[in-house]
Design a protein around this nucleic acid. Structure first.
Length: 899
RNA sequence: GGGCAAUUAGCUCAGCUGGUUAGAGCGCCACAUUGACAUUGUGGAGGUCACAAGUUCGAAUCUUGUAUUGCCCACCA
């Protein structure tokens, strides 16, 4: 048997073990048993693994290993995401910086830029792959996918066409969110709202002369858009403006600009805000556009497209054309001021919309784009025609999909309620190109280019979430089939064995921050495209924060914890535990190095416990691998019987916990079982009279139960201690319960033994006995004499006793320090050396505790209502406790009196 | 403006369906260094469970309200 080193060294172990797993094919599904699939949320193909990925990988690896050990047909599909906007902008920035090329898109052209991005991605994907391996992720690499794979592209195109044919995808001129920095549209979800200090300007919009009554003032935070107004909107009940409703005016603006507006009424207007009049700018505000659509018929003038995609005023802005929005605002305000039309300027907290991607303000402007209609009731679902929204609601409401923690179901429904048509086209090049071709007025939508000359493909690409939304199933279709264009999507699905067997997936695990971006979109697209839900359960983890609860951010590198650093320092197992234990689903958590180091210590504890077991075997001349069966339980020692009984409880707890996704609790339970029960008591008590069969058996169980959490160290130890015939731990079967091993009496007696030893140790400390010195002890007991006698050797060794006397309660040694347990009196005879002060302090404290406890219980028991209504078992329990406590109190009081 | 969550030891967190003398890890104090482990062991100190009212025989746990903190959503121009 090879000697294990004194401390566990993950660096010498992890890569070797991972390779062994991978080479053995253990990550591949067996094809037998109940299928259990996880789709790995694909990390961006650009970057580095961060803690968010690490948490995801750890959780999913636990799920999948547990399933695999339960003999399920476990498949975990890995992959990477092309991350359209993020990747393109990263590569463009690099080229700009490294090659001093200000506009790579213009200079390189579409084809060359795409080639460069693809190159870059290929390199990064290699990095990501190796980092995913470092975490110990047991995913099936032979099924690895990439969102830009040809087969996935086929799926994307198929879904696009099918939705187009169903009228769910349409092209329309609408106000969209324009990111002027990235020069593309973005979806509503990619907008972040922020409050900024702004100014609310009140301007004289119509003069008294024009209205024939009072002048009309309008408050606005964006004066520059007012020259693009089509209407003024007031509340229908607002008496101030009653006479104006329905009238049209020509508004004179500085620099010779003239607009025509109509005054209309709408209930959405708040008469108390500003002047109660809203200047309606249909082309540069989504809300205004909505309002405008409702009142189109009443408004005579057409909307004005004022702001261009470059963020500058267009020629429609007359004298302000060419200025940036900010410049135009300043200029117009000055002009109005000099005309005396600037009535008021006030400080104002303005909610503004920023691009999630670029961090720059989003400019709403009209643009011809592709959208997904979420309200059209044409999706066949459960025999009904529903809208995409309705299907999304149904699957969660009906329980086809459940979300952990369930409060996020509310959030999800709320999001759907507010969901509007999804703008899916992007003006970037990196991504799945919109499968539409144009020739003059002619449009061709298809998975392949149309025949005939003169067709040109739409230059836009699809939102990256469009392809990610297909992830759970597009990764399972047979790539060969996708090359055959005579097949329909449903043919492909029907004939793809993996899709047939492994979809829907069992659980989707991801951060709550992409519930809307991704999880909801997967539900939307997958139900439509496949008629199945993408997954049965959604498990959401929270954000990993710094020790102070701050967000880790790239701009503050000192706040970042790099998972790979931590792995090389403490090992992947320790990192995994530190991210799982102590954090519930959906809640943010804090991570810091000491925490990881703590779990490294735990791993090392396990390592040394195993060394101890191996050493015991060696000393007994037993080959641990040859141990197969447990001896007859009745022949075993108290400690053996107790640990075997505890083991059953732990096994049950762990299994139930994993089934119910209570990972933190399970981790804690295992931690304390291994460290407290197993190492501190069971192994200690085994010294000198070890039963190697039980030692080996219980250690094996520990390795099995811990394997999903810390796969590396457990696998490594398994090789020394597994039964000869057994294979790798990763493929080991999850143990079933053996209720006959439960032994409440043994566990109770074990606790008595522990409490005796602990109380002796405390007496020693209280009496300042040198740690090495052996002392005599007398235990006086009527109830536990037999037990204590049988355990005398243990008590002597662990209490470092020179002599142990066990007697009845009638004879008590004089001149001894004392302590009192339930039914046992512990005496440390010291021949005149007893530190009575210390003993008094200790006993007085105990006395006070007991008195408090007793009066509490007595209060309860004297309460008639309690006696009447509490469950009888509880009452009995309380009575028993009271007796014990009173007995103990009596002894302590007597002793105190004697002192 | 709407919604959601959190508030338990110095720090990070458990405490599941109400009955515990309220727990863990780290940190702290004291002690211990030759055979599993100092990445350790032994013993200890430390909490009116944010506040208030209510339900109940009984509340850290349920209800309501308040406060503080954080997050999400939202068309006050």
């Amino acid at each position: 048997m090879a000697e294990l080193p004194k401390a566990y060294d993950p660096a010498l172990t992890e890569d070797r073990i991972y390779k062994m797993w991978e080479d053995s094919g253990a990550f591949k599904p067996t094809g037998k048993g109940e299928p259990f699939t996880i789709s790995m949320p694909p990390p961006n193909a650009t970057g580095q693994l961060h803690l968010g990925h690490a948490v995801m990988l750890a959780l999913e690896d636990i799920f999948i290993r547990f399933a695999r050990m339960q003999d399920k047909d476990a498949l975990w599909v890995p992959g990477t995401d092309h991350a359209a906007i993020a990747t393109e902008s990263v590569v463009i920035k690099r080229i700009q910086k490294e090659e001093k090329m200000p506009d790579p898109r213009a200079k390189l052209g579409r084809e060359e830029l795409l080639r460069r991005i693809a190159d870059f991605v290929e390199k990064s994907r290699g990095t990501i792959r190796s980092q995913v391996r470092k975490m110990g992720s047991s995913c099936d690499w032979s099924r690895e996918r990439y969102t830009m794979d040809e087969s996935l592209n086929r799926c994307v195109n198929e879904v696009f066409c099918s939705m187009y044919n169903d009228g769910l995808i349409y092209r329309g001129e609408r106000v969209v969110n324009w990111d002027t920095a990235l020069q593309t549209t973005i979806s509503d979800d990619e907008i972040v709202h922020e409050d900024r200090e702004g100014t609310l300007y009140t301007i004289e919009y119509l003069s008294a002369k024009q209205t024939g009554g009072a002048a009309v003032h309008v408050a606005t935070s964006r004066p520059e858009t007012k020259i693009g107004d089509s209407a003024l909107v007031v509340h229908p009940d607002d008496k101030r403006y009653h006479s104006l409703i329905g009238k049209s005016f020509t508004v004179q603006w500085p620099r010779g600009i003239e607009t025509k507006i109509t005054v209309i009424a709408d209930h959405s207007i708040d008469p108390a805000f500003g002047t109660g009049v809203l200047g309606l700018t249909p082309f540069h505000s989504k809300t205004d556009e909505e309002l405008w659509k409702r009142h189109k018929g009443e408004i005579t003038s057409a909307p004005i497209h004022l702001i261009g995609e470059n963020g500058r005023m267009r020629k429609e802005a007359g004298g302000y054309a060419g200025m940036t929005v900010e410049e135009a605002r300043a200029a117009l305000v000055e002009d109005l001021r000099s005309e005396g039309r600037l009535v008021k300027e006030e400080k104002y907290t303005q909610p503004i919309s920023l691009s999630y991607r670029s961090g720059k303000p989003v400019e709403p402007l009209p643009k011809l784009q592709w959208f997904i209609d979420v309200n059209k009731p044409v999706v066949q679902w459960k025999g009904k025609s529903m809208s995409l929204k309705q299907v999304m609601q149904d699957v969660v409401q009906s329980g086809d999909i459940s979300i952990v923690p369930d409060r996020f179901e509310k959030t999800y429904f709320h999001w759907i309620d507010n969901l509007q048509d999804w703008c899916i086209s992007r003006q970037i090049w990196w991504g799945h190109r919109v499968p539409v071709w144009y020739k003059g007025e002619e449009i061709s939508v298809g998975t392949t280019a149309p025949g005939g000359k003169g067709f040109e493909q739409d230059s836009d690409t699809l939102d990256t979430w469009f392809s990610s939304a297909l992830w759970t199933w597009s990764t399972l279709v047979d790539p060969k089939l996708t090359q055959d264009f005579s097949l329909s999507l449903s043919d492909i699905l029907k004939n793809s064995p993996d899709f047939q067997r492994y979809h829907p997936t069992a659980v989707m695990e991801t951060g709550y921050d992409i519930l809307f971006f991704w999880v909801a979109r997967m539900i939307l697209m997958t139900t439509y495209a496949t008629g199945q839900v993408p997954f049965r359960k959604v498990y959401l983890h929270g954000l990993v924060r710094t020790r102070d609860g701050k967000k880790m951010s790239k701009s503050h590198p000192e706040t970042m914890i790099d998972p790979l650093d931590m792995i090389s320092k403490y090992g992947a197992d320790a990192l995994r535990l530190s991210m799982i234990v102590g954090q519930g689903p959906g809640a943010d958590s804090r991570l810091y190095e000491e925490k990881i180091a703590g779990y490294r210590n735990f791993i090392n504890k396990l390592w040394n416990a195993s060394r101890f077991v191996l050493m015991q075997c060696e000393q007994a001349g037993v080959d641990p691998q040859s141990i197969e069966k447990l001896p007859d339980v009745s022949t075993l020692s108290l400690a053996d019987r107790a640990i075997l009984s505890r083991e059953q409880a732990v096994m049950q707890h762990v299994t139930d916990g994993l089934i119910n996704y209570r990972l933190s609790e399970v981790g804690e339970a295992l931690y304390s079982y291994v460290w407290d029960d197993y190492c501190d008591w069971y192994l200690e008590l085994s010294k000198g009279n070890a039963n190697t069969a039980v030692l080996v058996h219980t250690l094996r169980k520990i390795l099995i139960l811990l394997h999903p959490y810390c796969p590396f160290v457990t696998e490594e130890l398994w090789s020394s201690i597994k039964p000869k015939k057994a294979g790798m731990l990763i493929a080991e079967q999850w143990p079933g319960l053996k209720p006959e091993r439960k032994d409440a009496k043994a566990e109770a007696e074990f606790l008595v033994l522990i409490s005796v030893i602990q109380s002796i140790r405390k007496l020693r400390t209280d009496q300042n006995i040198e740690p090495g010195k052996q002392v005599p002890i007398t235990l006086c007991t009527d109830a536990h004499a037999e037990l204590l006698t049988s355990q005398a050797e243990h008590i002597k060794r662990m209490g470092k006793l020179s002599e142990l006397t066990i007697s009845g309660t009638k004879q008590k040694p004089a001149d001894a320090a004392s302590a009192f347990l339930d039914g046992i009196e512990v005496y440390l005879p010291l021949e005149g050396l007893v530190d009575t002060g210390k003993e008094k302090t200790s006993l007085t404290k105990e006395q006070a505790n007991l008195e408090k406890f007793i009066s509490g219980i007595e209060g309860k028991l004297q309460n008639k209502e309690f006696i009447k209504k509490a469950p009888p078992a509880l009452i009995e329990e309380q009575k028993a406790k009271l007796c014990e406590a009173q007995d103990k109190l009596k002894k302590i009081s007597e002793r105190l009196k004697a002192l």
